[in-house]
């Protein structure tokens, strides 16, 4: 038996909206410690890694480890039927072929339930080592969203360079070139408005903007985003979802022409 209850059902709605364009399907791996998902896009260029902790839910029970194969567009269709203020409960019997989603309105006067058909998905898990990064940058998620959106209208790829001067995003295309530099800035009183650059060594890497732009669909989940960069390694774009957990996006770099 698996059962997980989340009072802020809107978080689940936002999460699936953030993933569904990038990955069509994946396994929700549930265990007594929580819910995890690792899924690559169809071209194996980027990966979504989601980890929600058991103690982040109002109620969590998982008697037996299970991999629940989810089609994200279908899950999205069901979650669109949940109100933004609804409490959502996920339920499945052991080895079930369906996941039940129950929505309760905040004043408890409307209760609905939907069954999502589960899929059997053979997924390849990638072993992602814990490592030190050359540069870790925390910035407002709205700022990241704006930069990648703006640059996507100019070019296809972005060179991200982190130095002690700041973090610079550069692109070029048919219309011309664009550079946006953010400096380390801890002046704003609210931590979520600060830009914090933790630099061990300067690093510069090139990435496809299309994917970075897609990751920004997670902006409604968190006020801050963390970018982690190391020479010749994938970038990590990470959103902390309050006390519930985190979603991380990994994107392989482009080799410079």
């Amino acid at each position: 038996m698996f059962e997980a209850r989340i009072t802020q059902g809107a978080v689940l709605k936002k999460l699936v909206e953030a993933l569904k364009e990038l990955v069509t399907e994946g396994n929700f791996d549930v265990s007594s410690t929580g819910l995890q998902l690792q899924a690559m896009d169809s071209s194996h260029v980027c990966l979504v890694s989601l980890a929600l902790r058991e103690d982040g839910f109002e109620h969590f029970r998982c008697d037996r480890n299970m991999a629940m194969g989810i089609h994200f567009q279908n899950l999205s269709k069901i979650l669109k039927c949940a109100g933004n203020e609804d409490t959502i409960t996920l339920k499945a019997e052991d080895n079930a072929d369906q996941l039940t989603l129950m929505f309760e309105s905040s004043n408890q006067d409307r209760i609905s339930d939907f069954d999502l058909k589960l899929m059997s998905i053979e997924s390849e898990h990638l072993g992602i080592p814990d490592q030190e990064y050359s540069a870790e940058i925390k910035m407002p998620s709205s700022e990241y969203q704006r930069i990648v959106r703006d640059l996507t209208s100019i070019g296809d790829t972005v060179l991200i360079s982190a130095t002690k001067e700041g973090i610079k995003f550069s692109t070029s295309g048919d219309v011309g070139t664009a550079n946006v530099t953010l400096r380390h800035n801890t002046t704003p009183e609210k931590p979520e408005e600060q830009t914090i650059i933790d630099l061990k060594e300067p690093v510069a890497l090139t990435f496809a903007l299309r994917y970075l732009n897609n990751f920004a669909k997670a902006t409604p989940l968190a006020p801050v985003v963390k970018l982690s960069l190391t020479k010749d390694l994938p970038i990590v774009v990470e959103y902390q979802i309050g006390e519930l957990g985190a979603v991380k996006f990994y994107l392989a770099p482009k080799i410079d022409d």
Binding site: L126, G127, I128, A252, K254
Partner: peptide, 14 residues
């Protein structure tokens, strides 16, 4: 995209 690497060349399948 030309020059785009795949994640599987960085992280092994477990």
């Amino acid at each position: 995209l030309p020059g785009q690497q795949k994640l599987t060349s960085f992280f092994g399948v477990t």
